[in-house]
């Protein structure tokens, strides 16, 4: 179980190898990676800036991770979330969940993502040709939490 909040990029392969190393009882590993999306056209962006609440971020992520571990039989989990100014295509964050069976690993990864979206203290600002704008939270992200209650 680990959480990292960092400006630096990460390497998915390295992280996954470290997570599963020496534990042959893991039968299922699920990973999700979020990337900076640029749809081009009128919405084209040149950069995504991620602000966070340093004193709160790691604790908030650890709480979400602990909740996932309490709900599903996970052997390992990892959340890495970056902050700072990122270019289109850059990796923003990743989650990895490892369990004996895939059902738990898939469900826990979805749970982590749903809660990261609206309960982790990050704010995104898109920089484009017409200036910068803060990304609004989506109602669908808030609604996604309801399926876990």
């Amino acid at each position: 179980m680990a959480v990292r909040v960092q400006e630096a990029d990460f390497d998915l392969g390295t992280e996954v190898a470290r997570l599963t190393s020496g534990n042959t009882s893991i039968g299922a590993l699920v990973t999700f990676t979020g990337l900076v999306r640029d749809l081009g056209g009128a919405d084209a962006i040149s950069a995504l800036e991620l602000e966070h609440y340093p004193a709160m971020t790691a604790a908030a992520l650890e709480r979400i991770e602990a909740e996932a571990c309490a709900r599903w039989a996970l052997q390992e989990s990892l959340i890495i979330h970056r902050y700072g100014r990122l270019e289109p295509g850059a990796q923003i964050m990743m989650v990895a969940t490892a369990a004996p069976h895939r059902g738990d690993a898939f469900a826990a990864a979805e749970f982590l993502m749903d809660f990261l979206k609206s309960r982790a203290p990050f704010w995104k600002k898109e920089h484009g040709a017409d200036g910068a704008r803060w990304v609004d939270a989506r109602e669908s992200d808030e609604a996604a939490l309801n399926r876990w209650t």
């Binding site: 979020g34 609440y53 004193a55 709160m56 979330h81 923003i92 964050m93 993502m113 990261l116 979206k117 609206s118 309960r119 982790a120 203290p121 990050f122 704010w123 995104k124 803060w134 990304v135 609004d136 939270a137 808030e142």
Partner: peptide, 12 residues
Amino acid sequence: REVAFFPPMTGG
């Protein structure tokens, strides 16, 4: 000791 104000969070 500390109060923080912010918009709805947009992590992930």
